[in-house]
């Protein structure tokens, strides 16, 4: 999005609309490969989407009433902390033995996927089910309040609080972001912010990129993906704190 406004000097609203539809393209294009590999945990996704969708709604309603600077700094610091946690576990290919909590057992959230790289089936359990939902609510609210794609919070929560395998976390997060983006995109569309001749080429490019990227990711080592992810978290954290202080 900054690229669109800075490089092409287009109006902010046109850029925001195009980038929101691009999020749907990323989510949808990549999800096909992730679902085929069973990386996406659809039950976890539906459970957590309750948090993200209601959170996004709350955030959108509250936007304008809360101090944005403070929120940027708050979420930036939280993100930096989660980046630090991820750095500590950077060598872990898979989480250790996880004991599911009561809600997770009741909802049957555990999953199983075939890891192409390790060449074996990975069975996993999920814990921290309620804290996970609460974090999703706030990550949805952050998206609504600050206009940031909160996928990065979602991955961290599933990885560090719910102790899901990293690949399953990224795939499930990717699956979820499309839904919140879709409701935003419909609103932009109704407002006439979507300029087809601007959005079309961008979205098509992102869609094709997502299909290719997802096929690469399912073949990558978790520790390699983390190496891409940690700098991204740190960068986003610094950028958010900067936007708060500036």
């Amino acid at each position: 999005m900054p690229t669109l406004t800075l490089l092409f000097g287009m109006p902010m609203r046109t850029a925001v609309a195009a980038s929101t539809i691009s999020i749907i393209a990323t989510s949808t294009g990549a999800a096909v490969a992730f679902l085929h590999d069973r990386l996406t945990n659809t039950r976890v996704a539906m459970w957590l989407e309750m948090g993200t969708s209601t959170g996004a709604l709350t955030g959108a309603i509250l936007a304008g009433y809360l101090n944005q600077r403070f929120l940027f700094i708050l979420f930036g610091v939280l993100l930096a902390y989660s980046g630090y946690n991820m750095f500590k576990t950077r060598k872990a290919e898979l989480p250790g033995e996880v004991v599911p909590d009561r809600v997770s057992r009741r909802l049957d959230l555990g999953g199983s996927y075939y890891d192409r790289l390790l060449g074996k089936r990975i069975d996993y359990q999920v814990t921290g089910t309620l804290p996970g939902l609460v974090i999703m609510y706030f990550s949805g609210a952050a998206a609504g309040l600050l206009g940031i794609g909160a996928g990065i919070f979602k991955v961290s929560a599933m990885d560090q609080v719910m102790h899901m395998p990293f690949k399953a976390s990224t795939a499930t997060s990717n699956f979820m972001i499309g839904v919140t983006a879709a409701s935003g995109a419909v609103v932009y569309f109704a407002r006439g912010d979507v300029k087809p001749l601007v959005a079309g080429p961008v979205v098509l490019g992102v869609l094709l990129g997502a299909v290719v990227g997802a096929r690469l990711m399912v073949r990558m080592k978790t520790t390699t993906i983390r190496k891409f992810f940690i700098p991204l978290i740190i960068y986003t954290a610094i950028e958010m704190i900067y936007r708060g202080i500036r």
Binding site: E49, L57, I61, G64, G144, S183, V186, V187
Partner: peptide, 24 residues
């Protein structure tokens, strides 16, 4: 889980009807 989906659909519908985009 059917109920969870319904909650999500309602939240989306309310968001769209209120015309609040998640980025302003």
């Amino acid at each position: 889980f059917a109920l969870f989906c319904l909650v999500v659909l309602c939240a989306l519908a309310v968001g769209i009807l209120l015309g609040h985009a998640h980025v302003e």
